[in-house]
Each structure stands twice: as structure tokens, then as C-alpha cells.
Design a protein around this nucleic acid. Structure first.
Length: 261
DNA sequence: ATGTCGCCTCATAGGCGA
């Protein structure tokens, strides 16, 4: 299936409130000029589409008051395919947005955090990941080049956190979500960052606001790009841009950037 | 348990979610 992805740059960033972070995001977009940007944790009913339109970006957003919220920005036309994850009609969280850009299936997710473990929140997380798996199976079968990006709220392996013992009681590090993430990989999806940086330690996308976590690089890698088998050979690079995390009043996450050919 | 953000409201302090 032909699609023009040459030089295409796709980024993902959990901004922890688009209203609080609008200056950081617009400055980063103007400088980095990604073809596509996936945003998570918008935390508001209104998405500032006009602000990004002025920078040349079309947008699609699924919003919710106070919580969650995901958006896709693109220099190219966006076709919105789905605004909710199938499998639970009662689930009203704004966590899923499936689009098509330049013949590529671009899926933006904000997976549930799931803390504390042993509660409905943790069960919701596992059920949500199981629903995502059903979609992942469908997308494999139709062969369309597919990228799933966003905040997975999963620390895949021990090297994806500064110190495993600090996270053993956290939902992001539990065997159940990690097992699901490994299943996604065994199905044929590629973890874009890890596959291009095998064994590299100290590479994180999130650092807590407290205890000087960023300054001491005590972080976790929870923002990911999964690539379908049809897309994986077209990855040229994947990196984490720590610059926005160093700004005044930053998001607790920083962007991850994927490049294709 | 704690730390620190950002949001909201039975609002200017406290609760929730992360």
C-alpha cells in the first residue's frame, strides 16, 4: 500500500493541561515542525484549534472536562476514523483517537493510569488494554501501515525506570499491564524507541514533579510508539526530546519523536 | 506516607487525579 511518508516526523507529548502548556507547545511546534503531533492529557472541554491553525496545523480532538483528552495535529489533512475505543459503551473517558493521515493510520492513546492497584481503576486499566488489543489485532489483519502513539502508562521493562524497587507498588509497573505490552510486541508490533536504542539505560519520558526527579534523572519510559510490521521498516529514527522538560512550569512528560521514510 | 502540579468547586482551601 503506497503512502508518502518520506521525511515524515511524528511526535507524541503528554502536556498535562493544554491550557497551562499552550506556550510550551506552540513554541515547540514552531521550532520542531512535526508533520503530526499527538497530545494527551488536555484536561479541558475546549481545544485551542485556532491557535494551531495559525501555525498551519489541522487538528482533531476528543475532549473532556477536567480529565484526559487527546488531540492529533497535522500539517496534512486529517481523517477522523474513531473517537472512542470499542468494547465498553459505558466508558466515556476521552482517551482514544484513530485518524488517517497521508495513508497512514495514526492512533493516539492515553491509557488509564490504574493507580492504586487492587481497585476498580486498576481493573479498568487492564480491561482498557484488552480492548486495545482487539483493535491491534484488527489493524494487523488489514495491513495498513499503522502507528499507535501516546501515553501507555506502562513501564515495559526494568531498564525503563531508574530503580525498579521504587515502582513495585505502582500500577505502571505491575506484571499485568507489562504482560499486555509484551503481548502487543509478540503480536508483531515494534516499540520504536527501544528497537532503535536496544539496552540503553536512563532513557525516560516522564519524571515526577517532586524530589528533584528530573534533575537526578529518576524517571520512567511510559510514552511509546508502536509500529505495525508494515510500518516498522520505514522508521529512520526515534528519540526523546528532553528540552521541554527543562522549561519553567513544564509538563511532567516530554515529547517522543518518530521519523519515517 | 511523602513529595508537586493542575483542575474543579457546596470556591480563596480542600479534594481528586496523576
Amino acid at each position: 500500500m503506497a503512502c508518502n511518508l518520506d521525511g515524515m516526523k511524528i511526535a507524541s507529548w503528554n502536556v498535562n493541561s493544554i491550557r497551562a502548556r499552550i506556550a510550551h507547545v506552540t513554541e515547540w511546534v514552531a521550532r520542531e515542525k512535526p508533520d503530526v503531533l499527538l497530545l494527551q492529557e488536555l484536561k479541558g472541554s475546549e481545544f485551542p484549534a485556532l491557535t494551531f491553525q495559525e501555525l498551519g496545523y489541522e487538528s482533531a480532538a476528543v475532549t473532556q472536562k477536567t480529565y484526559n483528552g487527546v488531540a492529533v495535529l497535522s500539517l496534512h489533512p486529517i481523517e477522523t476514523v474513531a473517537t472512542a475505543l470499542l468494547g465498553d459503551e459505558a466508558d466515556t473517558h476521552a482517551r482514544f483517537l484513530e485518524t488517517r493521515v497521508q495513508g497512514l493510520r495514526v492512533v493516539n492513546i492515553y491509557a488509564p493510569n490504574g493507580n492504586p492497584i487492587g481497585t476498580d481503576k486498576f481493573n479498568y486499566k487492564l480491561a482498557w488494554l484488552d480492548r486495545l488489543k482487539v483493535k491491534l489485532e484488527h489493524w494487523l489483519r488489514d495491513g495498513t501501515p499503522t502507528v499507535i502513539g501516546g501515553d501507555f502508562n506502562i513501564i515495559p521493562e526494568d531498564i525503563d525506570c531508574h530503580k525498579p524497587s521504587s515502582w513495585i507498588h505502582d500500577a505502571l509497573f505491575q506484571p499485568e499491564p507489562r504482560e499486555r505490552y509484551r503481548t502487543f510486541l509478540s503480536m508483531g508490533y515494534t516499540d520504536a524507541f527501544r528497537s532503535s536504542h536496544p539496552g540503553e539505560t536512563g532513557q525516560f519520558t516522564f519524571w515526577d514533579y517532586f524530589r528533584k526527579a528530573f534533575e537526578t534523572n529518576r524517571g520512567i519510559r511510559i510514552d511509546h510508539f508502536l509500529l505495525s510490521p508494515s510500518l516498522a521498516p520505514r522508521m529512520t529514527a526515534c528519540h526523546i526530546d528532553k528540552a521541554p522538560r527543562q522549561l519553567e512550569k513544564p509538563s511532567d512528560h516530554t515529547p517522543i519523536v518518530l521519523e519515517l521514510h
